[in-house]
Simulated scan of single mutants.
Amino acid sequence: MEQNADSVEKPKRYIFLLLTDFSILSLSTALETLRISNRIAGRKLFEWVLCSEDGQPARSSLGTDFEVHTGLEVLSRDDTILICGGAHIDEATTQTVVHWLRREARKGLSVGGLCTGAYTMAKAGLLDGRRATIHWENQDSFREAFPQVDLTTWTYTGDENRYSTAGGTSGIDLMLHLVSELEGEELADAVAQQLNYSSIRVIQHDARVSVPDRINLRHTKLSHVIHEMEQNIEDGLSSSELAKRVNISTRQLERLFQRYLGQTPKRYFTELRLQRARNLLEQTDMKIIDIAVACGFSSPAHFSKLFRRRFDNSPHGLRKEKLFGRRRQGFAQ
């Protein structure tokens, strides 16, 4: 019996929205996962459309223009939008893009963000009360801008029909997850093998290498203390409070920091706060006084003094460099 053409299942369609300075790596890993899925299956399971805000070529993270198929068109409810973000995501997230996303999402479309695309989703209100992730460099600024979002440090997230990734190769993880949901684990495993991706990471995998891992630190109590510091940047915890949380004396805690990190707990905590402050200065337009408070400094003057000593520049100076860089980029275009 001949199969009716109308009964053949249509390919699942993904709409990739390329924002200015989008990550080439995130786009390519996602597209390759879909392409290889089609090849292994021997039929067109997935198809994709590349779009930009105005239908014109989109500038990539490599500084080259990338051709697209269309602008912001009206989509089908069965489509899935994947927003490809990158650097300067706040500037790339225009009101036109936000309005389009809101309109299409109201139809019930699934929406995902690659690399920093979760910022655009949150700006459109699509992540309120939902789990999400974003590139680790944008975690601090995202948390300040969108407290209503349940931000995680996972490689990728899925909360009903909302998805997000943390950049790098995490686009592969998300797409393999979607392939598995739609076509089964066997195909997803076969695609992972073709990609030489030996281990499909579970959805709870932490995207950022932790401080203890980066310094090859395996002392459980010290790792716990560092985690407590990272989670309490604004409020702050004294050495005695930190020691109490891991059931050791303050003197023992200080010895651990000196042995493994070569500095006192107080100095290490200050370094964490200064690094977060620098992230917020570079990635947000928050007032400097608000950044000082958010990072646990008692006064703007004290914050500026420590910041200058650490980075050989003042918070105001770094903010001016950021603004100058934006203007220079605008002139170059």
Rank of each mutant, 00 (worst) to 15 (best):
G184D: 01
L126S: 10
T270D: 12
G71E: 07
A132P: 15
V149C: 13
P315V: 00
F66S: 15
K12E: 05
L25E: 09
R39Q: 15
G317V: 00
L217S: 03
R131G: 00
C84M: 12
L178I: 15
M121E: 13
A124N: 13
K305S: 09
F16Y: 11
V74M: 04
E67L: 13
S141T: 09
G85Q: 05
C115K: 06
P300F: 01
Q193W: 09
A301G: 08
A188K: 09
F46T: 03
Q231A: 10
Y163Q: 02
L187H: 10
L274R: 01
G262T: 11
L187W: 06
S76V: 03
A192I: 03
F257P: 08
V293S: 11
K266T: 14
D54L: 08
R328T: 15
N196E: 15
L101M: 13
G42F: 09
A92K: 03
G167M: 00
F331T: 14
L18M: 04
R267F: 08
V209K: 09
I89L: 08
V98N: 06
L182A: 14
A166N: 03
Q263V: 05
L242C: 03
F311L: 02
E9D: 04
E2W: 11
D290K: 14
E228K: 15
G171H: 12
L178P: 14
P57Q: 05
T70C: 13
I40L: 14
P212I: 01
E254V: 06
A188E: 07
Q333W: 12
A122R: 04
L114M: 13
I81S: 04
C51G: 05
Y163R: 04
K221Y: 05
L101P: 06
F307T: 00
P57N: 09
E53L: 01
H205F: 07
V68P: 11
S170K: 00
L253Y: 09
L253R: 08
S110Y: 06
L176M: 04
D312A: 11
R309Q: 12
Y197C: 08
M286V: 00
H316E: 15
G262A: 10
G125N: 13
D285A: 02
L253F: 10
P147E: 06
L237A: 08
Y14K: 04
R102C: 11
N216R: 02
E9R: 10
P265E: 03
R319T: 11
V111E: 08
M1W: 07
G42V: 11
G129V: 01
L281S: 00
I15K: 07
L318E: 08
S52N: 07
S164T: 04
F46N: 10
C84K: 07
I40F: 10
F22I: 05
T64S: 10
S298Q: 07
I134T: 15
V191C: 09
A243H: 11
T152P: 05
S37N: 13
E186D: 12
D21A: 09
F257E: 07
P265S: 04
L27Y: 10
R143I: 11
L242R: 07
A41H: 14
V111M: 08
L178H: 07
L50M: 14
K320T: 11
K44P: 02
A188C: 10
G71T: 01
Y119T: 05
H219L: 02
G112D: 10
L256I: 08
